[in-house]
Every structure is written in C-alpha cells, then in structure tokens.
C-alpha cells in the first residue's frame, strides 16, 4: 500500500473510529515510515491548535444584539395575536 493510502486513514485513527485490523496495519506502517509518522503528529496538532485557539476566543453576545432579537420576537408575537 502506498503512503497516500495510509494517510487517508489518519483522521479516522485520530478520532478512534478505525477498525482494529486497520489500526494494526497503520501502526505497523507508522513504526516504519518517518514521513507518515510526522504527518500523523502534525495532523493531530492542527486539530489541537485550532481547538485551543477557538476556546480562548469565545465571545459574549453583545447586549445590543440580544436586545434587538427580543424586540423582533415581540413584534412577531404581536403579529401572531391578530
């Protein structure tokens, strides 16, 4: 099997969604192929970095935005009453 084929399994491996027989095949390859091993580590870090970045970036809803939603909803309630 070419490296490309192993790399297609990497995401499923990261997500623990790979069947055991394929885990064995992939792990054997990773123990032999430095390039694929690096690919695996850097893929995992891509996910971790993105997740960590967004966790730190979480925003509150601005008060004005929230107020506007409730204003519009109340207009809809009124319309629905008629």
């Amino acid at each position: 099997m070419k490296c490309e084929k192993y790399l297609e399994l990497i995401s499923l491996y990261i997500d623990r969604e790979l069947d055991q027989d394929l885990i064995d095949v992939l792990e054997e390859h990773l123990s032999l192929c430095q390039d694929c091993l690096v690919f695996f580590h850097t893929m995992k870090k891509t996910v971790t970095l993105s997740r960590t970045y967004y966790k730190k970036k979480c925003c509150r809803v601005p008060k004005a935005v929230s107020t506007k939603i409730f204003y519009h909803l109340r207009l809809i309630y009124k319309k629905e009453q008629f």
Partner: peptide
C-alpha cells in the same frame, strides 16, 4: 502527497498560541 522531512512541530499548543502571527494564520 505530503511535505517530506517536515519537523514534528512542538508540543505546547498554548505556547504557540501566544504568538499573534500563528493566531492570524489559523483564522
């Protein structure tokens, strides 16, 4: 198929994310 000979990056994502350049690149 993929970048050959690329180093394994580093282990601490928090440390990387103190870098503004990387934050912008992720976004």
């Amino acid at each position: 198929e993929f970048s050959l000979g690329m180093s394994d990056w580093s282990n601490d994502p928090g440390a990387h994310l103190r870098n503004q350049e990387l934050k912008l690149l992720i976004e």
